[in-house]
Amino acid sequence: MTTATTPRQPRYLLDNERVLAPLFMTPAVLYIIALVGFPFVLSIVLSLTDATVGNPTYDFVGLETFRRILFDDPVFRTALWNTFVFAVIANVLVVVLAKALAMVLVSDFRGKWFVRFLVLLPWTAPVSLATITWLWTLDSIFSPIDWVLRSVGLLDGNIIWLGKQNLAMSSVIAVHTWRIVPLAAVIMMAGLTSIPQEIRDASEVDGAGFWRKLFQITIPLMAPIIAVAALFGLILTITDMSVVFVLTRGGPTHGTQVLSTWAFFKGIEGGSLGQGAAIALFLFPVLVAVAALILRMARRREVL
């Protein structure tokens, strides 16, 4: 037995975990450094300069770019507020809908796998392609939604989804929610299946109804998982520019302008690279704090 419990010397180099671990980790680390780390550091540098899009040289201006966007740029303030509204409403919807969807998808019914496939489609489709489809769906002339409503006599004319302030913001939020819900639902499905069956059985024996089980067993036990899903949703919402850029380009006027799109307009289309970088980085400290808080909370619940 002694022989059996002694760790065996690996016969091949690739069986050695000291070799395998760095081997597997290296591509991910290189990927993060090259495609996330380097651009991130570069954007910090740019945000502290007067860099323009066509000038290879630039001067260090300290926090002047941040002062400019905060105090001299009214569109930035609008975009900041819109980002907040957009992120909060979209994520409340994401959490509620993903929870409901996850509960449906873990139950047994005929054709479950096909339904799961359909539900995941919005997440797997390229964001620009999916958003262009929505652009056509919400078109002021050719919207099929309008056509159906007209056909059944509920509408006269067109709704003009993207040309009115509240409808445009609602459309942007709805499309983003549609995109993120599948991911959040998959995360929550993992959480649901991890709840021990004996707890469910005990609650059944005690005569707990659906709502009582939901609010006193399922949601408390899944809280850390829900928080992680919300964290993903929050980050994906705040950092995404595709939905707003394709659907409204920030309009009407700047009614749906968010920080990511305004950073693009300011930095790339306008040419003021330093200010664009400052706008893009503005919420980074907030995101880091929120992410740290949520992950700390999740770890405390010892679910992760």
Binding site: S140, N158, I160, W161, G163, P252
Partner: peptide
């Protein structure tokens, strides 16, 4: 109408 606030490069053509 308000559609002009959501105008894009293809709107004229459409």
């Amino acid at each position: 109408t308000e559609e002009v606030f959501a105008w894009n490069a293809a709107s004229n053509n459409q």
